[in-house]
Computed example of a mutant assay.
Amino acid sequence: MEESGKTAVVAGGSAGAGRAVVSCLIDAGYRVGIIARGEDRLQQLEATYGAQVLTRSCDVSDAEAVERAGAEIEAALGPVEVWVNAAMLTSFSPFARMPSCEFDRIVDATLLGVVNGTRTAIRLMEARNRGRIVNIGSGLSYRAVPYQSAYCTAKHGVNGFSSAIRSELIREGARVTVSLVQLPSMNTPQFDWARNRLSKKPRPAAPVFQPELAAAAVMRAVREGRREYLVGTSVLQLVFANMVFPDWLDHRLADRGAEMQKSQAEEPGNRDDNLDTPVPGIDATPHGSFGSLASGGGRVVDGDRARWLVFGALPVAGFALGLLLG
Results as ranks from 00 to 15, higher is better:
residue 302 D to M: 10
residue 118 T to Q: 11
residue 81 E to W: 07
residue 252 R to F: 07
residue 50 G to K: 01
residue 256 R to E: 10
residue 3 E to S: 00
residue 169 L to A: 04
residue 308 W to M: 15
residue 307 R to S: 14
residue 175 R to K: 08
residue 191 F to M: 03
residue 91 S to Q: 11
residue 274 N to L: 06
residue 32 V to T: 05
residue 6 K to G: 00
residue 100 S to N: 09
residue 215 A to G: 01
residue 37 R to C: 13
residue 170 I to S: 08
residue 24 C to G: 01
residue 283 D to Q: 10
residue 281 G to S: 11
residue 87 A to E: 10
residue 158 V to H: 14
residue 84 V to G: 01
residue 273 D to W: 08
residue 169 L to K: 01
residue 187 N to H: 04
residue 219 M to Q: 15
residue 228 E to W: 03
residue 148 Q to I: 06
residue 129 N to D: 15
residue 258 A to T: 14
residue 192 D to L: 03
residue 127 A to I: 09
residue 121 A to K: 06
residue 182 Q to E: 15
residue 75 A to D: 03
residue 298 G to H: 10
residue 110 T to H: 08
residue 284 A to Q: 12
residue 267 E to Y: 04
residue 134 V to K: 06
residue 207 P to E: 12
residue 137 G to V: 12
residue 120 T to D: 14
residue 111 L to D: 04
residue 100 S to C: 14
residue 187 N to C: 02
residue 108 D to F: 01
residue 297 G to S: 15
residue 165 I to R: 05
residue 231 V to D: 14
residue 178 V to I: 05
residue 227 R to T: 12
residue 232 G to I: 11
residue 88 M to R: 11
residue 257 G to E: 00
residue 120 T to S: 15
residue 220 R to N: 13
residue 183 L to T: 01
residue 48 T to E: 13
residue 12 G to S: 00
residue 203 R to I: 02
residue 89 L to G: 04
residue 237 Q to W: 09
residue 156 H to N: 12
residue 305 R to V: 15
residue 172 E to N: 08
residue 321 L to P: 00
residue 110 T to Y: 07
residue 19 R to K: 02
residue 90 T to W: 04
residue 121 A to L: 09
residue 40 D to E: 15
residue 260 M to R: 09
residue 215 A to M: 07
residue 321 L to A: 14
residue 12 G to I: 00
residue 278 P to G: 10
residue 159 N to T: 12
residue 185 S to W: 10
residue 272 D to V: 01
residue 7 T to E: 01
residue 253 L to G: 03
residue 66 V to G: 09
residue 91 S to H: 08
residue 45 L to W: 11
residue 59 D to A: 04
residue 133 I to P: 03
residue 145 V to P: 09
residue 200 K to F: 05
residue 11 A to I: 00
residue 110 T to Q: 04
residue 115 V to R: 06
residue 64 E to R: 03
residue 249 L to W: 13
residue 272 D to P: 00
residue 279 V to N: 06
residue 165 I to H: 07
residue 111 L to V: 01
residue 322 G to H: 05
residue 203 R to E: 08
